[in-house]
Design a protein around this nucleic acid. Structure first.
Ligand SMILES: [Mn+2]
Ligand SMILES: [Mn+2]
Ligand SMILES: [Mn+2]
Ligand SMILES: [Mn+2]
Lengths: 220, 220
DNA sequence: TTTGTAATTTAGGTTAGGCTAAAATATAAA
DNA sequence: TTTATATTTTAGCCTAACCTAAATTACAAA
């Protein structure tokens, strides 16, 4: 059964909010994520329930089904492949891709995605460090922790960001943080949790706990 | 003012049916092209009239306005650029691109199209030989005539096809006709108008008048 | 165990884009 | 000039995806 663009967007939101199907999700949460009203969400949940991509019990929130998870991961796969395309081939900045990918992810053509994947050389991660599910929906996850949870003097590598908003990404550009950068925690301020970080053994940057919490690091 | 996907599709149909704005177009013609009912078309014409991309007088057909022409050409530009991308970069066959381009042409992002154009090296023609309007809507047309109108022994080069349906394009593949092929008219059968053609000085192919009428040639 | 309240659903309405059936109109034929 | 008919529009209905306002329900606090 086919999903509309709106249904795909809702399903993706539910997938993310449920932490990949681990938690159940409330109507209000979905409304918040989708910028719609709870009443609209109730309507949509009923429809998604009928299509059996979620399990919906009135008043008790929803759980994504296996079929739903598979569908959501296909949309996420498309979204992230397009993001790679935009950055790698069309020279978009990493803060410019999200909106466009949000549209491109709904183009219906299995051949297109298969060929795009090959054209991009089967990338495993998108420009924000998020893993790209394979055609079966399998995701190769990397162990990673928020930068603010690292210990003093620990080293690692920035592998992803939690927040993909343009504002946050442009801030990272400004201070010189990027995916792949090698980092070391030089100082952690007790008072406010802010950090001093050494980037690529040459640049010192200071950041709030809030910013660090949105940077994901592979420890080494 | 913004056009919806449906409105863009209608406007493009009107542009094509009107031969680029030269003729006025009837409700029934649009319904035929769009595979919708005349009643639905009437409704849409009223809306497009209000948005001033067409001039609509009830019962008298429509004419596309200058603004409408500009909009239609932008959509056509996007359609054809995506077709080039699919063929040149993703190895689609020329009969596989139309449906997908029909979706991709509605993605809203001027930056995307600008970058795509550059990435493809500013192509002037799509895989079916149709000219790609520039960002201002200007089209560089080539003089071309249907193959069935060529004289005996005349030579030329196939530069485009009138019919972009998969069935027709696959037939051309089968007989070995393609955009860029050098051809010469070896025989014209009086009885049914069918032709014998020499392709690239080495291959003889026979084709009906109907097929030849859908092949466009630059004379030499 | 009752009750207050936040969360959620339902009822009813809107717009976009379709449809069918009926009415209106232009125009070609008589 | 009248009339037949093909074309086009209108009226009324449908579904998808939103909305607001009202009703319902779950559950925590009393
Ligand atoms: Mn989307
Ligand atoms: Mn991303
Ligand atoms: Mn289209
Ligand atoms: Mn084409």
């Amino acid at each position: 059964m086919n999903l509309t663009t709106a249904e795909e967007n809702y399903l993706k939101a539910i997938y993310h909010l449920s932490d990949g199907g681990k938690k159940s999700v409330s109507t209000n949460d979905v409304a918040g994520e989708m910028n719609t009203k709870p009443a609209s969400v109730s309507d949509m949940l009923r429809k998604l329930g009928e299509k059996e991509v979620i399990e919906y019990r009135k008043y008790y929130g929803v759980n994504i089904t296996d079929e739903g998870k598979k569908r959501a991961l296909q949309t996420i796969r498309k979204h992230r492949l397009w993001e790679v395309f935009l950055v790698e081939k069309l020279n978009f900045a990493w803060d410019e891709v999200h909106e466009v990918a949000e549209e491109l992810e709904h183009i219906q053509s299995p051949l297109l995605i298969q060929r795009l994947d090959a054209f991009l050389n089967y990338p495993k991660f998108d420009p924000h460090g998020d893993p790209i599910p394979d055609e079966f929906g399998d995701v190769r996850a990397r162990p990673r922790i928020p930068l603010n949870e690292m210990e003093l003097n620990q080293s690692g590598q920035i592998v992803a960001v939690k927040d993909s908003s343009a504002a946050f990404l442009r801030y990272l550009d400004k201070v010189g943080a990027y995916i792949g950068a090698r980092i070391k925690v030089l100082d952690k301020v007790e008072f406010d949790g802010s950090l001093e970080i050494l980037v690529d053994q040459k640049k010192n940057i200071f950041m709030s706990k809030d910013v660090a919490g949105n940077i994901l690091v592979l420890q080494s």
